[in-house]
Simulated scan of single mutants.
Amino acid sequence: MYAIFKSGGRQYEARPGAVVKLEKLPGEVGENLTLDQVLLFSDGEQVQVGQPLVQDVAIRARIVEQGRHRKIIVFKSKRRKDYQKKQGHRQYYTAVRIDGIEKQA
């Protein structure tokens, strides 16, 4: 059983028990979430594809961690113009554990 869902402008795959790092979501560690923007749902036998969303399917998740990714370096330069700019960036994320995928029927 798995589902494809949308969060923060990106698409993620959800399987029960998996930990997924999403774009920053409000909430404290230990809180429960319901992710209801499901694009595709498969129960092992049938596959439902939404147009654009699958109705009556929701993903239950629990916040495991609020953190930041590794630093990336953004370096810009223009040759022969004596221009260089170096900048670092760390993106915030929310790690969630997928507790289950529910079909309301």
Rank of each mutant, 00 (worst) to 15 (best):
A3S: 13
A3L: 05
I4F: 06
K6Y: 07
S7N: 14
G8E: 09
R10A: 09
R10V: 02
Q11K: 13
Q11D: 07
Y12F: 15
E13N: 09
A14C: 04
A14P: 12
A14I: 06
A14Y: 05
G17N: 10
A18F: 11
V20K: 01
K21A: 07
K21W: 03
E23V: 02
L25Q: 12
P26G: 08
P26K: 14
G27S: 05
G27L: 02
V29W: 03
V29K: 12
V29Y: 07
N32I: 00
T34P: 01
T34S: 14
T34H: 07
D36C: 01
D36A: 08
L40M: 13
L40D: 07
F41M: 02
S42I: 05
D43C: 03
V47G: 02
V49S: 06
L53N: 11
Q55E: 15
D56M: 10
D56T: 08
D56L: 06
V57H: 13
R60P: 01
A61I: 02
A61L: 04
A61M: 03
R62E: 15
I63R: 09
I72C: 00
F75C: 04
K76I: 04
K78W: 00
K81H: 14
Q91K: 14
Y92D: 13
Y93N: 05
Y93F: 15
V96A: 11
R97T: 06
G100H: 04
E102Q: 10
A105M: 09
